[in-house]
Design a protein around this nucleic acid. Structure first.
Lengths: 223, 223
DNA sequence: TATAATAGTGTATTTTGTACAGTAAGTAAG
DNA sequence: CTTACTTACTGTACAAAATACACTATTATA
C-alpha cells in the first residue's frame, strides 16, 4: 500500500449553514472570515472553525458556534464534506458542513459581534466554497420538508398553521392552497392544538398548534 | 478565537461501502484491514485509505479502490463523515464514507487479493465504525431507490424488468406486485425497450430494457 | 358600525395506488 | 411430439390521495 506521509494539518474544519424563516424570507447567518493571511480577507462566510483532537465534529461545531455567534442547542445535521484541493487557497483543508435550523423568533437573540442574519437572496460571493455549501443546505432543507417533520426546527414551540405553511412556501419557493395544506398536514396526525390562541395581532387570532412527541426524533412523514 | 494547534494527522481517510445485488441478495465488498499496529488486526472492513494533499476525496478513493480492489469507474456518492474521537483506537482520524454501486455482473471481475463480496446478512463485526457505515449506506440506498433512478447503477446496460424489480425487493427487503411494479416504472417514462430479448435462460425470455438518457445524471423520480 | 385583515372550512373531480389471476412463450424430459 | 416446468406478460375494479376552487367568521381599528 502507498501510505501518504503525515502532514501538518488540522483534522478538519467544521462549518454551519444556519437557516431561519421569517417575514416571508429565508435567512442565513454570515460573519466575516478570520483575517489571518487569507485570500478571502474581507469576505463573509459561515461560522465554524477547526476541530481539536479531543472533539468530534459536532462538539467542535458547538464550541465554535457558542464562541463566535453565541448559539447553543441548535438543531444541526451533517450536510456534506467539501474536499476540493483548491477550496482554501491558504492551506489544504477539508470542511465538514452542517445544516442548522433556528426558529426565527429566537434568531435575533443569536446575533453576536459582526455576525448578521441575511436573506439568502441578498447573499453574494462568499469565502471558500461557502456558496456551494449554501446551495447544498438549501436543497437539503427543501427536500426534507417533504418527508420529515424537520419544519418543527424552524418554529417556536407553539405556532399557527399559517406560520407552518409559510415555512414550506418560503423554503420551497412555491405556494400551497391553504385548505389543502391544512387538510394534508392535519391528516398526518403529527400536530395537536395547544388550546391557546395567537395574541397581539390586529385580525382574527389563529389557533396555536404544537408538534406531538419529542423534538429530538425526526419522524419520517412517509413509512 | 481559539485556534487548535496543528497536529500530525493525515487530512482524512476515505472508505467505500460498495454494493451489488444478485442471487436475491445484497452483497458488499470487504477486505482485511491493514495489519500495522492496529487494534483491529485480523478484522474486515471496507476498502479505502488516506487522502494525499494533492487529492480531493473522490480522487483519493478512486486511487485506493484501483490499488486495493482493482475497481475503476464505479458509481460513488458521498455518504457521511465519521468523526468520533474513539472511532480509531490507533490514532485520531476522520473518515469520509462513500456509497458505491456496482452491477452484479461485473462485481466478480472486481475481486482482488483477499477482498471478497459478502452477503450483508453474513457480515459480522467490522473494524472501526464500519458497521455504522454499512447501515448508513444501506439506508441511503433503500431511500434513494424511491425517488431517484439510482437503481441503474446496480444494473448492466440492458436488463429485464424482473431484474429491476429484484433490486428494489432485495435492497428494501419487501416484495412488490409484478403488474403494479411494471405499470408504475413504465409510467415514469425512464425506460425504453432495447428490442433484444434475454438469452441463455430455460424459460420464456424476457424483453430487455435500458434507461433513457445518460448514465451520468441522476434523474429524480419526483419533481 | 363599517372596514380591513387574516382565520377557518367542504365538495366534486382527477390522479394515483392497490388488490388480484390467468394466458403466453420458451426449455427440458420422457 | 407431448407434457411438465418455469418465468414473462397483461388488465380491471376499487380505494385512497391529491387537486381545484370561494365563501363565511372573527378580531382590531377607524
Amino acid at each position: 500500500m502507498t501510505q501518504s506521509p503525515p502532514f501538518r494539518f488540522a483534522i478538519a474544519a467544521v462549518d454551519a449553514v444556519l437557516f431561519a424563516v421569517g417575514n416571508g424570507m429565508l435567512w442565513t447567518l454570515l460573519r466575516p472570515v478570520e483575517t489571518v493571511t487569507n485570500h478571502y480577507k474581507g469576505m463573509s462566510g459561515f461560522p465554524g472553525g477547526v476541530m481539536r483532537p479531543e472533539e468530534n465534529a459536532e462538539q467542535a461545531l458547538a464550541r465554535h458556534l457558542k464562541e463566535k455567534v453565541n448559539i447553543e442547542r441548535v438543531y444541526l445535521e451533517q450536510l456534506y464534506t467539501f474536499t476540493d484541493v483548491t477550496r482554501d487557497t491558504r492551506s489544504r483543508s477539508v470542511a465538514i458542513a452542517y445544516l442548522g435550523l433556528v426558529p426565527f423568533s429566537t434568531a435575533e437573540r443569536y446575533t453576536h459581534d459582526s455576525a448578521k442574519w441575511v436573506p439568502i437572496k441578498k447573499v453574494g460571493t462568499l469565502a471558500y466554497d461557502h456558496n456551494d455549501m449554501l446551495t447544498s443546505a438549501h436543497t437539503r432543507l427543501a427536500g426534507k420538508l417533504l418527508y420529515t417533520t424537520i419544519a418543527r426546527q424552524l418554529l417556536p414551540k407553539q405556532f399557527t398553521l399559517t406560520e407552518l405553511q409559510s415555512i414550506y412556501e418560503v423554503v420551497r419557493a412555491e405556494t400551497f392552497d391553504k385548505r389543502n395544506f391544512r387538510k394534508k398536514i392535519l391528516a398526518l396526525d403529527i400536530l395537536e392544538e395547544t388550546g391557546d390562541m395567537q395574541s397581539g395581532v390586529q385580525n382574527r387570532p389563529a389557533a396555536l398548534y404544537r408538534f406531538k412527541g419529542s423534538t429530538v426524533t425526526e419522524i419520517p412523514l412517509i413509512a
